[in-house]
Write a protein that binds this DNA or RNA. Structure first.
Length: 693
DNA sequence: ATAGGGTTAG
């Protein structure tokens, strides 16, 4: 092929030669053949006369990530005359992700005196958008206006994207509004901008405007719209988007399927997502990842891990996103065995562990009660490579295990190292202080938020209310909420309600509950909590009323499950579970345990039983709380020298908490319990939470 | 001969 090409040189025109070699260069699938052809065309002098082939080499070298060679080819040309080769080189830098090189190359182009054209700007703007170079982008914007390319539809779409990418969406909108002509791509770019800025409502609003202007969604538009609807968690609109995609034959595009899948996942429609997933014959990594996420986000972490087993035997390769999802599933499960299994798997399969994934793995170990490993991983990162998330992970890790002082030390160290704390840092520090009863320290951190100009969000107030509440400072807590005026959300009132439960303040609790039932009428937890407060004060009438309310609204108390690991498997125990041959021993063990503990001074605390039944029955129900069954199972099966790990999906009740303390003292066992809020480390008859939880 | 909007995770 090559030889015949050379022969052509002798008797054919330059155009035919170009087309011929163009085909050869394009079909190169490895670097060495490309280099070979390059050297032949250089020595024969053909390349010198062909701008076209030069451009082709630049692009082809960049396809193999040989940017230096590409630049070398560029430099060897007489490039000062036209913009074309400059544009080509810009394209090479941009498409391979060398954004800062693209921008400095553009600067060089201007310095050399070459005029940019309408093809130049989309590349440079893309580089600005991705590397968040807003000031540079603005400079280019003024050059666009100066050079008279401000009305080019491609250039304007790229400008919209640049401003949106840099987070200044209103500037993006200004460009969009000024356009004299818009096509579908421009509309989609602007809709996407709102979606990325988490302004789903505005995105949908603009979509309707677009449709009134006579444009129909294509598959790219629908992908973006599905994201917006998913963000809003709008189940009604989800079906409409899905139906539109099917009606217009867009559901054949895999990205559409994937984004619709993600949309349903975010709306909590697990079954619909499963159906779509099952009917999708050609899945890619994103399809699998989306389904894994669907399970994880909807609290079905075990299903996610099961699905991963199916993914492994399918012919899909997984990537670092898959790893991240699995790690978060393990964090949710709190299972040490699964955590190490997934970590090993990631290492064995050479998944690229970037800092984000590393931080996520640290967090996973912390949430699986293995703080030592989390700490070791933190220390393995050189200080200059740490990011804010690494610090946040360590702070929250200490916090959830009740090490408030250590969390504060890390926070101070972080400041010493000149890291800027962010909103997550403060959530972690404040909740750490709260869990350890460090009120003064917490107040100090709360006031430091202004120094670092981190806005105070409801979640930060919720931590403060929680902190005051646990310390018995209910008035301070309530005053803080009043300061928030209408900004108080359910998290804040929920924290107050919990404090009222701990300190038995029914009247303030009623006030909090009023607000909560108004803000979140479907949230079962608040009804249960208020009902328990009434039960504490033996106000069975109000308990009955609340239960009636819940029934009328179709709300049910979520089933409590306590998980315990044994023999590389998770065993789940539910309260009052049916007796079967497997659990009979466990029930007997509970009976025996309660008798023994009573001799040591344990008195059952019946106050936390939700149901209004006779006291004798209550003792019965109480004995068979899932966490007690799990504990008995652990005492029977797990070697006495090892700690017992239990993970509960709800808050531990006070009676179980007391039993766990007694067991740790009387039988000399170490017990670690994770509930929805934090970890409890039981040892020598005491708990690390100091009975505040 | 060159260009603009895109799905998963955080």
């Amino acid at each position: 092929m090559l030889r015949s090409g050379l022969n052509l040189c002798n008797n054919r025109g330059i155009f035919e030669i170009e087309t011929h070699f163009d085909k050869i260069i394009q079909s190169c699938n490895n670097l060495s053949s490309l280099t070979q052809i390059h050297s032949i065309l250089t020595t024969t002098g053909i390349i010198k006369h062909s701008v076209h082939l030069t451009a082709r080499f630049i692009i082809k070298y960049s396809d193999f990530f040989q940017l230096q060679t590409a630049r070398f080819v560029f430099n060897a040309t007489d490039h000062e005359s036209s913009s074309f080769l400059w544009n080509t080189m810009l394209r090479a830098y941009t498409n391979t992700g060398f954004y800062s090189d693209a921008l400095s190359f553009y600067s060089l182009m201007r310095k050399t005196g070459v005029r940019p054209n309408n093809f130049t700007f989309p590349f440079t703007l893309k580089s600005c958008a991705v590397s968040l170079m807003l000031s540079y982008g603005k400079m280019i914007h003024s050059e666009i206006v100066r050079t008279g390319f401000g009305s080019d539809i491609y250039v304007d779409a790229a400008l919209v994207d640049m401003y949106a990418g840099c987070g200044v969406i209103d500037d993006a909108r200004k460009v969009f509004d000024k356009m004299s002509k818009r096509d579908l791509v421009c509309w989609t770019a602007m809709i996407t901008a709102y979606e990325q800025a988490e302004r789903g409502e505005t995105a949908l609003c603009l979509l309707r405007k677009m449709q009134r202007d006579g444009f129909c969604m294509d598959w790219v538009t629908i992908v973006t719209v599905a994201s917006a609807v998913g963000q809003l968690g709008d189940a009604q609109n989800s079906r409409a988007v899905h139906a539109y995609a099917i009606r217009n034959a867009l559901f054949n595009e895999l990205p559409v399927v994937n984004s619709v899948l993600a949309m349903y996942a975010k709306c909590g429609e697990v079954e619909i997502a499963e159906t779509i997933f099952d009917h999708t014959k050609q899945r890619n990594v994103i399809t699998w990842n989306t389904m894994l996420t669907c399970y994880t986000q909807n609290g079905l972490a075990s299903e996610a891990l099961d699905l991963f087993e199916r993914m492994k035997v399918s012919d899909t390769d997984f990537n670092e996103v898959t790893a991240l999802i699995l790690v978060s599933a393990c964090s949710y499960l709190g299972s040490r065995q699964h955590a190490t299994k997934i970590h090993d798997f990631i290492v064995q399969n050479n998944v690229d562990i970037n800092l984000t994934l590393w931080n996520a793995i640290m967090d996973m170990y912390a949430k699986c009660a293995d703080l030592e490993t989390a700490l070791r991983m933190f220390k393995e990162i050189p200080v200059n490579r740490l990011d804010v998330s690494s610090w946040n992970t360590l702070i929250s890790g200490y916090g959830m295990h009740g090490y408030g002082k250590e969390a504060l030390q890390v926070y101070n160290k972080m400041k010493d190292e000149n890291f800027q704390p962010n909103h997550i840092t403060f959530t972690s520090v404040l909740s750490a202080c709260s869990h350890s009863g460090l009120v003064n320290e917490g107040k100090k951190c709360f006031s430091e938020m202004e120094i670092f100009s981190v806005p105070k969000e409801p979640k930060h107030y919720a931590c403060m209310v929680d902190m005051y509440g646990r310390a018995g400072l209910l008035n301070e807590a309530y005053e803080l909420i009043k300061d928030m005026k209408s900004h108080a959300n359910d998290e804040v009132w929920g924290a107050l309600l919990l404090a009222c439960k701990i300190h038995g303040n029914t009247s303030l609790a009623e006030l909090a509950a009023d607000n909560l039932f108004h803000l979140e009428p479907q949230h079962t937890g608040y009804y249960v909590l208020m009902s328990n407060i009434y039960a504490d004060s033996r106000n069975w009438q109000e308990v009955g009323k609340l239960r009636g309310d819940m029934k009328n609204k179709g709300l049910r108390k979520p089933a409590a499950v306590s998980l315990i690991e044994y023999n590389n498997e998770l065993h789940g125990f539910r309260t009052g579970e049916q007796l079967d041959s497997l659990t009979r021993d466990v029930y007997e063990k509970v009976e025996k345990m309660v008798v023994e503990l009573k001799m040591e001074g344990y008195v059952p605390d019946v106050s936390c039983v939700f149901h209004d039944v006779e006291d004798e029955d209550k003792h019965g129900m109480l004995k068979y709380h899932g966490e007690k069954l799990a504990l008995a199972f652990g005492l029977m099966n797990i070697d006495a020298s090892l700690p017992i790990f239990i993970n509960k999906n709800l808050r531990v009740c006070s009676d179980c908490h007391s039993v766990f303390k007694f067991v740790s003292g009387v039988y000399g066992r170490k017990i670690v319990v994770r509930d929805v809020n934090r970890f409890h480390h039981f040892e020598d008859g005491l708990c690390s939470c100091n009975d505040y939880w």
